[in-house]
Computed example of a mutant assay.
Amino acid sequence: MIRNSGIRAFPPRLPDQPIFYPVLSEEYAVKIARDWNVPASGSDYVTRFQVRRSFLENYSVQKAGGLAHLEYWIPAEEMAAFNAAIVGEIEVVAEFR
């Protein structure tokens, strides 16, 4: 069972993570978590959240491969502004180990 923990912000990026890549579909997020991140790190989560349109209008949707692989590229130095634009809580919708 997945529990929401009242998460309202994402942590700052690590030095080797210059960009935050929120994706536009749960299917793509599951693929990343399950197929790529679990083999690399042992576990990962899929989250769902809403971001104010006024913030996202400053960025273009990027296609990272096929038509289903759509994401935003948010520079690490803009994470505080991104977090401030989140509406409500960040919901964990899947966990992979």
Results as ranks from 00 to 15, higher is better:
residue 1 M to N: 11
residue 2 I to T: 13
residue 2 I to L: 15
residue 2 I to G: 09
residue 2 I to W: 08
residue 3 R to H: 14
residue 3 R to L: 15
residue 4 N to L: 15
residue 5 S to N: 14
residue 6 G to W: 06
residue 6 G to Y: 07
residue 6 G to S: 11
residue 7 I to Q: 14
residue 7 I to D: 11
residue 8 R to Y: 07
residue 9 A to W: 03
residue 9 A to Q: 12
residue 10 F to E: 11
residue 10 F to R: 12
residue 11 P to E: 13
residue 11 P to T: 11
residue 11 P to G: 13
residue 12 P to L: 15
residue 13 R to V: 10
residue 13 R to G: 14
residue 14 L to D: 09
residue 14 L to S: 11
residue 14 L to Q: 08
residue 15 P to L: 13
residue 15 P to I: 11
residue 16 D to S: 07
residue 16 D to N: 10
residue 16 D to H: 06
residue 17 Q to R: 10
residue 19 I to K: 01
residue 20 F to I: 09
residue 21 Y to A: 12
residue 23 V to D: 01
residue 23 V to R: 05
residue 24 L to P: 00
residue 26 E to R: 12
residue 27 E to M: 08
residue 28 Y to E: 08
residue 33 A to M: 03
residue 34 R to K: 14
residue 35 D to W: 03
residue 35 D to C: 06
residue 36 W to Y: 12
residue 38 V to F: 03
residue 38 V to H: 02
residue 38 V to M: 02
residue 39 P to W: 02
residue 39 P to Y: 03
residue 39 P to D: 04
residue 40 A to N: 08
residue 40 A to K: 09
residue 42 G to N: 08
residue 42 G to E: 05
residue 43 S to Q: 12
residue 43 S to Y: 05
residue 43 S to N: 13
residue 43 S to W: 02
residue 45 Y to D: 15
residue 45 Y to T: 13
residue 45 Y to K: 15
residue 46 V to L: 12
residue 46 V to N: 05
residue 46 V to I: 10
residue 47 T to F: 15
residue 47 T to I: 14
residue 49 F to V: 15
residue 51 V to C: 09
residue 52 R to H: 10
residue 52 R to W: 06
residue 53 R to C: 12
residue 54 S to H: 00
residue 54 S to A: 10
residue 55 F to C: 10
residue 55 F to K: 06
residue 56 L to R: 02
residue 56 L to A: 07
residue 57 E to I: 07
residue 57 E to C: 00
residue 58 N to Y: 01
residue 58 N to H: 06
residue 59 Y to F: 10
residue 59 Y to E: 01
residue 59 Y to C: 07
residue 60 S to H: 00
residue 60 S to Y: 00
residue 62 Q to P: 00
residue 63 K to F: 07
residue 63 K to S: 13
residue 64 A to F: 08
residue 64 A to Y: 02
residue 64 A to P: 01
residue 65 G to K: 06
residue 65 G to T: 02
residue 66 G to K: 07
residue 66 G to Y: 01
residue 66 G to D: 08
residue 66 G to W: 00
residue 67 L to K: 01
residue 68 A to N: 03
residue 68 A to V: 01
residue 68 A to T: 06
residue 69 H to R: 12
residue 69 H to G: 02
residue 70 L to Q: 06
residue 70 L to Y: 00
residue 71 E to M: 13
residue 71 E to P: 01
residue 72 Y to G: 06
residue 72 Y to W: 04
residue 73 W to G: 07
residue 74 I to P: 00
residue 74 I to T: 01
residue 75 P to H: 03
residue 75 P to T: 05
residue 76 A to C: 06
residue 76 A to M: 05
residue 76 A to K: 05
residue 77 E to S: 12
residue 77 E to G: 11
residue 77 E to K: 09
residue 78 E to N: 09
residue 78 E to Q: 12
residue 78 E to Y: 02
residue 78 E to P: 00
residue 79 M to K: 04
residue 79 M to L: 14
residue 80 A to I: 05
residue 81 A to S: 09
residue 82 F to H: 07
residue 82 F to C: 08
residue 82 F to M: 11
residue 83 N to R: 06
residue 85 A to S: 11
residue 86 I to N: 07
residue 87 V to Y: 10
residue 87 V to H: 09
residue 87 V to R: 13
residue 87 V to N: 10
residue 88 G to M: 13
residue 90 I to F: 10
residue 90 I to N: 09
residue 91 E to F: 13
residue 92 V to F: 14
residue 92 V to A: 15
residue 92 V to W: 10
residue 93 V to S: 12
residue 94 A to F: 04
residue 94 A to M: 09
residue 94 A to W: 02
residue 95 E to T: 15
residue 96 F to W: 01
residue 97 R to P: 13
residue 97 R to I: 11
